[in-house]
Design a protein around this nucleic acid. Structure first.
Lengths: 350, 350
DNA sequence: CTGTTAGCGCTTTCAA
DNA sequence: TTGAAAGCGCTAACAG
């Protein structure tokens, strides 16, 4: 079955390829109404499907953008991707999905691929350090938007989130509810987001002149090749909670703040397992506000992270740059918000 | 900055474009070692990046496959996608992500797009009924693999999962632990998977000659435009659990089986909220074995669904077909397995 | 082993 | 308002 091309249509209506192209590619080049109709009708009737490779070759563009994330099955990234896809679709663009598995070689390959496919823009999140392909990509005219991670490359635009402040308001909430012994439970501080949250924790304690107790600081050791999926976070929460539970009663925290919701869940699980009630005996605050956070008992107090909104933002920004509107670009810092549910409670006065 | 093409390289090493192409596209056409080296070196040195549009136009192929799912932010589909992406990557293919939002118009558009981009294969899951573009796509030589949903189109190959049996073994587990009053809680039976699970429930009751009580059958009504995300499932579980809790005590179930884990979570939440202990007062079984299922208290007994494995399978099958190996294709039915955790218990003899 | 040549399907000058 | 012609970067038949 021969595929029908622009030339077949031209022949069938006695027009030139040029005219057909002008009509079918929605060019604003003037073509008479009569001709226009005739061509459109023929195209439809012959079931014409344009071959984008032809156009791409000629115009050196593609209606595709890329997105590189460590793991699409991590709910955090899948939300981001979902936001990106939504606005790309609205603009008639498509998304090439690049699942890097936190493997720098795969990341490099993906950049190469994007280049080869004439993909002019890419959104990245949690890229490995020291990926020289990034520089090469932007140097060749590719446009890059980074989510949640500062890149020391001036060609890369950024969509940020104020993690420090997120940590701050979480602790503020606990402090204002009378808590003084507040533990911090976290995965290794090996990326900017986690470091930011930790800073917020410290800043709040300092500002409110609350005591800082080393024993209440529970940060996991970094392990070679450790992959931070949901199970890791949950188990990490459990493990570190055990540490807290092994303290003598008067040294134990009255509240625990975790670096993300799954870790908070692990902490909650372990405390409940040991007969502690949440929030009566201990308050718990998470981070991210994943869907899950409303489904636990009790529902989790946490800090909102606008995941899909960040994806949408990043994608809008990308199109702004692609359209050459770089002057107008505002780098953005999205703000956190406390979501108060039932895992926290004020300390009753004695 | 001029982009370097095969012709530039040819010039620089005094060879023909043809030879350069043969070397750089890893053709098995014989080229002398010396020439080979010279060309490769030049390519590297000039920082050559092939323009795939050229090749694509010439060869009428693209190294891209598509995947159409209702929602990438649904953990179920993101696992599937993740499996697909993994094997696509191993084969040097890329994945065009199509998030259909259960909107038939979007689905149609995506098929059109795939066709325009010369994407020769697509994996679909939960496609809307009556999408005529599917037929058109396969009729034009596109290859389709369907996950979890029978298509009455003989050109579509399928990767299936035995939902009926999954439902069966869940109930069997409960029956063999002495339960007789077993409730079934489900979202609307508007797709094959849910109907299958329900059949398994019925079959098991019948085979074990357990009584069937209409009052224990809790199936949500279908609502126009209802979108089955995690929150819906959870809330649905809660709502229907309330119905069970409002029964007089002797009429209540001793065990509840839910059509998926999130629904089971909703049921568990509601029972616990009303002071019932799980599993002491009521046993609960979910379906899918999402990551979450180990994180609840108590951890959830559930039925394993190999999500990413199905993605990998589907993708392998796709390549088999793309390579013309259609004779060898075995349509597959993956089997469920019970995952016994702590939300179920045998009924103590009185 | 190497080169010449003719397109793949499309857009876009330029001329009419 | 239309058409002729050139060419985007690549591959593949064919000839040498």
């Amino acid at each position: 079955m021969k595929t029908v091309t622009i030339r077949d249509i031209a022949k069938s209506v006695n027009a030139s390829q040029a005219t057909v192209s002008r009509v079918l590619s929605d060019s604003d080049y003037p073509v008479s109404e009569a001709m226009r109709d005739k061509i459109k009708k023929a195209a439809k009737q012959m079931n014409y499907t344009p071959n984008l490779a032809g156009r791409q070759l000629k115009t050196n563009t593609s209606m595709t953008i890329g997105i590189i994330v460590p793991s699409i099955s991590n709910p955090f990234y899948s939300e981001v991707v979902s936001g990106v896809e939504e606005v790309a679709r609205q603009r008639g663009y498509h998304v090439l999905l690049c699942n890097s598995c936190q493997d720098i070689e795969l990341e490099k390959n993906y950049f190469r691929t994007l280049l080869e496919n004439q993909v002019k823009g890419v959104i990245i999140s949690s890229l490995s350090k020291g990926n020289e392909m990034l520089a090469q990509y932007s140097q060749r005219g590719g446009c890059v938007i980074s989510i949640d991670q500062a890149q020391n490359n001036s060609d890369v635009f950024q969509v940020n989130y104020d993690y420090r402040r997120g940590g701050y308001i979480a602790i503020q909430h606990l402090l204002e509810n009378g808590h003084r012994r507040i533990a911090y439970v976290s995965a290794p501080l090996d990326r900017p987001s986690r470091i930011g949250i930790y800073k917020g924790y410290q800043d709040a304690l300092r500002e409110y002149e609350a005591p800082f107790d080393e024993a209440l600081l529970c940060i996991a050791e970094a392990l070679e090749g450790q992959y931070y999926d949901g199970k890791y976070e949950f188990n990490n929460g459990r493990t570190l909670a055990k540490r807290l539970l092994s303290l003598p009663p008067e040294k134990r925290p009255t509240a625990v703040f975790a670096c993300n919701d799954l870790t908070a869940l692990g902490v909650m699980y372990e405390f409940q397992e040991h007969g502690h009630r949440v929030p009566d005996d201990v308050s718990i605050v998470g981070f991210d506000n994943v869907d899950l956070a409303v489904m636990t008992s009790p529902p989790l107090t946490t800090v909102e992270h606008p995941k899909s909104e960040m994806g949408r933002f990043a994608c809008h920004m990308l199109f702004q740059v692609l359209e050459g509107d770089t002057g107008q670009i505002q780098e953005i810092m999205l703000q956190p918000k406390l979501v108060h549910r039932q895992s926290t409670q004020s300390i009753p006065l004695r």
